[in-house]
Design a protein around this nucleic acid. Structure first.
Length: 222
DNA sequence: ACCCAGGGTCATA
DNA sequence: TATGACCATGGG
């Protein structure tokens, strides 16, 4: 499929956005007060419901293990036990420590902020445990870069709207969204937040189409 | 007792 | 490139 007659076009995307914004209001993402907290949350929320991540973050804060230095000093088992509610706790404990080591080697958040988006993205993807979606969460919500995050919800919603196939490679989908829209980090921020908000209410694997604000535009409603 | 959640890595063909 | 196994808790 080429770009002559893109299924994903700006006017449709902005119409969906406005509909979601009218229905749910501004979400003001990411939940988290600091850049560091956004990044920790992005790693912990991999394939995991957000309330479980909040519990894990609370545990880390209560134990006063919520900084690059503290996470590196703490033992693997201690971190793992604290983040237990977020699931995959052994893997995620390693990922948190790996990221902190990376941050230290790079010279901290300030050094990363100096990099161009494409360079920073490549660097983040080189960290074991940070894949494309987590990298884009970090780029958009921690570093305010105009990157359109693709997640399972995005695939599901827009495939049900008949705008994408759904099974495209990550980079292909991201390119489609970013080519259709102006690079606007505030827009991308709110758009992804609204996608998640909407999917949690109406666009689950078993859809709940009653009162769905996108119902008239959807290809599957019963 | 299922099914699913704001993924990523690794082995295999 | 494209599947499949694995990681693991908590809520519906």
């Amino acid at each position: 499929m080429n770009n002559n007659n893109p299924m994903l076009n700006k006017s449709d995307l902005m119409m969906f956005f406005q509909t979601l914004l009218d229905a749910y209001g501004a979400q003001e993402w990411w939940p988290g007060e600091t850049t560091f907290e956004v990044i920790i949350g992005a790693i912990l929320t991999q394939n995991t419901a957000w309330p479980n991540v909040e519990k894990a973050i609370k545990n880390l804060k209560r134990a006063d293990i919520f900084s690059e230095a503290a996470l590196l000093v703490a033992s693997h088992d201690e971190v793992a036990q604290l983040i237990r509610p977020s699931g995959y706790f052994n893997i995620k404990a390693t990922r948190l420590k790996t990221f902190c080591t990376f941050l230290q080697q790079q010279g901290g958040e300030q050094a990363l902020r100096q990099l161009e988006t494409t360079a920073l993205r490549k660097l983040l993807l080189s960290v074991k445990g940070i894949g494309p979606e987590t990298a884009d969460d970090i780029l958009l919500y921690a570093f305010q870069r105009p990157v359109f995050v693709i997640d399972a919800y995005t695939r599901r919603i827009f495939s049900r709207l008949g705008k994408v196939a759904g099974g495209e490679p990550y980079e292909e989908l991201r390119a489609e969204f970013e080519l259709a829209l102006e690079p606007d980090s505030a827009l991308f921020n709110e758009y992804h937040a609204l996608i998640v908000c909407h999917a949690k209410r109406f666009c689950k694997s078993k859809p709940t189409c009653i009162d769905c604000p996108l119902k008239s535009l959807c290809t599957i409603p019963e």
